[in-house]
Amino acid sequence: MAVFVYAENINGSYKKAAFEAVSYAKEIADQLQDTVTALAVNPTDPADKLYGYGATKVVNIQDEHLKSFSARAYAKALGEIADGNIVVFPHTTDASSIAPMFAVENGYALITNVLEAPSSTAPVTVKRKAFSGKGFMNAQAEGDKVVLTVSQNAFGTKENRVDGSEETRAMSIANEDTKVLSHEQSSGKLDLKEAEIVVSAGRGMKGPENWGMIEELAEVLGAATACSKPVSDIGWRPHSEHVGQTGKAIAPNLYIAVGISGAIQHLAGVNSSKTIVVINNDPEAPFFKSADYGVVGDALEIVPKLTEKIKALKG
């Protein structure tokens, strides 16, 4: 019956979150001695990329109407193909919009923001995020049919090459109630939710004019940039960089917090990071209690020096 997975792409290229979702689906399929079927909408990347993470079959949906995004139209398209008991989605903005509609329309239970492979598959029981990083919930689905959305950067990508085959499906889904008027996307900018390393800064930076050094540190590390809530409230940085309980929740391998005090609402969004470095001139800053490494001192002096040292390391 296959474990189905939605492999999301951006302008045709599969996202890291798609490889993560396929890796996750493969783990479940192995538990069930089943195979993975990936569904892709208008991809340009070769299906081979998904075989690399364990998809035995890739259904390539070709539909002009789906070139503009509508959660409802996408849910309908996927519903015409996915008929297994378990359907996996990444928890990206788009996929997490499709999943609830898909689940309701096709009679699935929905468990979002899952962090690990299910601890049981009959019934499906799985650990998920709850209380914005302040706790976890073990959730159990009633019935056999369940949709899971996989929290980004939690399970990770796991290469697992299989022999696969691709099937192209031409579709024509009515997509009339939603019209895209404009689409702005900075290409090449590392997505904050997908980034392995994030350099984040707070009010301790004093003003937006000092963000150049944050961007330089991010650049040598191949990192995305983030900020605390007040920094985006005052307009020093865009809202899309706000992390925390009321902003984005992230889980990079390395989170570097510069001039951020470490309020409980901030920590809630970043404490799933594997390693946390805190740079703050106040030795009593609460963030040090939730850090792995700490440096006490003036960020405006430390950050440029750190950038130089990392440049030297990278050669």
Binding site: K134, Q140, E142, K289
Partner: peptide, 22 residues
């Protein structure tokens, strides 16, 4: 209801921070 909460877990605390001189 289609999903039930079986149990909850708290977040395990991080190990002691290592301080590095500036």
């Amino acid at each position: 209801a289609k999903v039930s909460a079986v149990s909850f877990e708290s977040v395990p605390p991080r190990a002691q921070v290592k301080m590095v001189d500036a």
